[in-house]
Write a protein that binds this DNA or RNA. Structure first.
Length: 369
DNA sequence: GCGAAGACGCTTGTGATAGT
DNA sequence: ACTATCACAAGCGTCTTCGC
């Protein structure tokens, strides 16, 4: 293999072969080499074509995407900012987006882990802008999303000015298309499910209060529960298994007679189930537990979690398709509502009260949705 | 059918000029 | 004589246009 050798700081290193190297090696012009390697429709003599392809193979030529971008073309790269690499639902999104970017758009995605830090999210937005990515999907921000909201808004505006398409996978009070489930509808779905299955005293462990998504779900959920005379106690906690365990313990201490625990994520539910079982509490015989998201944690949990399928992968793919579309350039799209559905597992039971107080017994739940 | 040249956006290097 | 500032040119790799 022939390598171009350049002197760098006193030692010898090899430089990646360029299109120019290929052209010289094949004895053709730069333009001819470019036409052959980019598989242009422009007619090139078959002999020269073979020479160029052979030279490219011999030199180990790999196109330089930075240079291609410099020329004014698309970078072929999208940025995806996820909230927490350790959280299963972000894993689903990252897997779906990276896979689709490659298979459907011939691109690849840079995945940034904001580690639940709003400031880090803004920093990544600037970094992705510096790299001139074609678009950015905001998949994080499921935490405190208001403290640095002004800085985030300004970063988004800066991206828009430079023609970088931005989409969000949750409502965040930003002027960007949202590809998310209907959070109020989710709240209603959960509330109806609780009522239909006879639970009248429940505990609710939701995600952080300073989060628009949590707020919308909570409003719909509590509004319906109040209308149905269901007693409830709410705690806003981090969306982690650890927080779920602590939250379940506190809920148990304050409201020992609740029959169902509704959790804002599968991670919270997973932690809650582990804690309750460690305390010797029968699930769902004594307490029913419900998660949200239908992530791997729902299937890993024992018993298997009853949860809500949020179709995170579908949301990520829809956002990616938007970013790569012509609509993204115009910046005019409201986004898309992603459907959700109940997933009946083994962690939730129906309460039957045929013979008055104290005679409740748990049965397989009923779902009308 | 082919190749020279220009354009893209940014950084780095160079030379001219002004100020101390 | 030295330093600071500014303007301009060159270079990076690729793609397209235009002329031969």
């Amino acid at each position: 293999m022939k390598w171009t050798t350049v002197q760098v700081a006193g030692d010898k290193r090899t430089k990646n072969p360029t299109l120019n190297d290929v052209a010289q090696s094949a004895g053709v012009s730069l333009a001819t080499a470019a036409r052959v390697l980019r598989k242009s429709n422009y007619p090139v003599d078959e002999t020269l074509k073979n020479k160029v392809e052979a030279a490219a193979k011999l030199l180990g030529y790999v196109p330089n995407m930075v240079a291609r971008r410099l020329r004014g073309g698309k970078q072929g790269v999208v940025g995806l900012i996820i909230g927490d690499m350790m959280d299963a639902h972000y894993g689903i999104i990252a897997e779906a987006v990276t896979e689709r970017a490659e298979s459907a758009h011939g691109n690849f995605a840079i995945v940034c882990n904001m580690q639940r830090d709003p400031l880090l999210e803004i920093k990544y937005l600037h970094r992705l802008l510096e790299y001139r990515v074609d678009g950015i999907i905001l998949a994080g921000g499921g935490f405190d999303q208001w403290t640095h909201h002004q800085a985030l808004t300004e970063a988004i505006e800066e991206l828009k000015r430079t023609g970088t398409a931005v989409a969000s996978l949750m409502p965040r009070g930003l002027e960007v298309p949202i590809f998310s489930a209907d959070n109020e509808a989710i709240g209603m779905t959960v509330a109806k499910f609780i009522v239909e299955n006879g639970h009248s005293k429940i505990g609710i462990l939701l995600g952080p209060a300073r989060n628009e998504m949590t707020k919308l779900r909570m409003q719909a959920l509590t509004s319906h529960l109040s209308g149905c005379a269901v007693d409830y106690a709410i705690a806003n906690i981090d969306s982690t298994a650890e927080a779920g365990a602590i939250g379940a313990a506190e809920m148990l201490a304050r409201n020992p007679d609740f029959s169902a625990l509704i959790c804002g994520s599968d991670a919270i539910a997973f932690g809650a189930v582990n804690h309750l079982r460690a305390e010797g509490i029968d699930i769902p015989g004594r307490i029913s537990v419900m998660g949200l998201g239908n992530t791997r944690l729902a299937t890993l949990s024992s018993p298997r979690l009853t949860t809500v399928e949020m179709n995170f992968a579908q949301a990520g793919n829809a956002a990616l398709d938007f970013i790569m579309s012509e609509d993204a350039a115009s910046g005019q799209s409201p986004g898309e509502i992603i459907p959700h559905s109940l997933v009946i597992g083994d962690s939730f039971a129906r309460i039957e009260t045929p013979a008055g107080p104290g005679s409740e017994r748990a049965e397989t739940p009923r779902a009308t949705d």
